[in-house]
C-alpha cells in the first residue's frame, strides 16, 4: 500500500505545478457555468411546475460540476498513459514489482485530484457570494455534506474504473482515438454532464440510475443540495460501490489478458 501512496504523493505534487493550465480552466468553467445556469433558468421561467429540480439545487449542481470538472469529467484522460501502449513506455511499468492496474488507478486519482484542487478553490470562492438563484448555496445539512464528500470520492473511483477499461482496450487496438471519442460523447450525455439526469424522461432516468453512468456525478452533486435524499440516496450510495467493484474486476481481467499480449517494439 505504501508504494501506491508514495506514487500518489509524487503525481499529486507534480500536478500542482501546472498553474497556467489551471487558470485557463477556471476562466472557461466560469463562462460555461453561467451559460448553463442562464439556459436552465430560461426553462424554469417558462414553466416552473414541470421543472424537475428547485432552482437552487440546479445552481448547486452546475457550480459543483464546474468546480470539480477535472475530477469527474469523462474527457479528462492521462495523455501519458494513452501513449504508453504505442510508444513503449509500458516497458518500465511492467518491470516494477507492483500491480500495473493499481498503479495506474493511483496515478489517475492523483492527477485528477491535483487538477481539481487547483481549480475548485477559486471557483467555489466566488460562486458562494453570487445572489441566490445564481450562486452556490450551503449544503442541506452536515450529513448530506459528508455524504457529498464520500460520494464525490466514490464517483471519482467509478469513473476511473470506467476509464481504465478504455486504457486496457488500447492494448488490443493500439489507437484508442475512435473508441475514445465515442466513449466520451456517450459518457458525457449519460452521466448528466450535459444536462443533469433529472431532466431526462422518467423511464430513461430510471434506467440510467441503475447503470454505472448514474453513479458518477449524478450522485454527489444532487446529494449536496438535498435533491437526492432518503431511500433513493441510500440506493445511489450502494450502486456506486456495486459498480466500482464490477468495473474494477472487469478492468483487472482485461489488464491481465493485455499483459500477455503486450509487444514492446524496437530498441
Amino acid at each position: 500500500m505504501k508504494k501506491y501512496l508514495s506514487f500518489f504523493r509524487l503525481r499529486f505534487a507534480m500536478g500542482l505545478q501546472y498553474r497556467t493550465a489551471a487558470l485557463a480552466g477556471v476562466v472557461t468553467q466560469f463562462f460555461w457555468g453561467f451559460m448553463e445556469i442562464l439556459v436552465l433558468r430560461a426553462f424554469y421561467e417558462a414553466d416552473p411546475t414541470v421543472y424537475p429540480m428547485t432552482i437552487e439545487a440546479t445552481c448547486c449542481y452546475i457550480w459543483l460540476q464546474q468546480a470539480f470538472l477535472a475530477l469527474l469529467s469523462a474527457n479528462n484522460f492521462d495523455r501519458e498513459l494513452m501513449g504508453c501502449a504505442t510508444d513503449g513506455g509500458i516497458a518500465y511499468e511492467l518491470c516494477r514489482p507492483v500491480s500495473v492496474y493499481d498503479m495506474w488507478f493511483a496515478r489517475n486519482m492523483a492527477v485528477k485530484m491535483s487538477q481539481a484542487m487547483l481549480r475548485c478553490v477559486p471557483i467555489l470562492g466566488v460562486v458562494v457570494f453570487l445572489p441566490e438563484g445564481y450562486g452556490l448555496t450551503a449544503p442541506r445539512d452536515a450529513l448530506h455534506f459528508l455524504l457529498f464528500l464520500w460520494t464525490l470520492f466514490a464517483g471519482l473511483s467509478v469513473l476511473i474504473a470506467m476509464q481504465m477499461i478504455l486504457y486496457m482496450i488500447m492494448f488490443f487496438t493500439l489507437s484508442v482515438e475512435g473508441v475514445k471519442s465515442f466513449f466520451v460523447a456517450a459518457i458525457d450525455l449519460l452521466t448528466g454532464a450535459v444536462i443533469p439526469i433529472p431532466f431526462f424522461p422518467e423511464k430513461i432516468q430510471r434506467v440510467l440510475e441503475l447503470l454505472p453512468f448514474g453513479a458518477i456525478q449524478n450522485v454527489p452533486y444532487r446529494i449536496y443540495s438535498g435533491d437526492l435524499t432518503g431511500a433513493q440516496m441510500r440506493r445511489a450510495v450502494f450502486m456506486q460501490i456495486f459498480w466500482l467493484a464490477v468495473l474494477a474486476s472487469l478492468g483487472k481481467l482485461l489488464m491481465h489478458r493485455a499483459q500477455r499480449k503486450i509487444i514492446v517494439q524496437g530498441g
Binding site: K2, K3, L5, S6, F7, L10, R96, P97, V98
Partner: peptide
C-alpha cells in the same frame, strides 16, 4: 529515486 525506493520496498 525516492519513489523507486518505496516501490521496491
Amino acid at each position: 529515486f525516492e519513489l523507486l525506493k518505496d516501490i521496491y520496498s
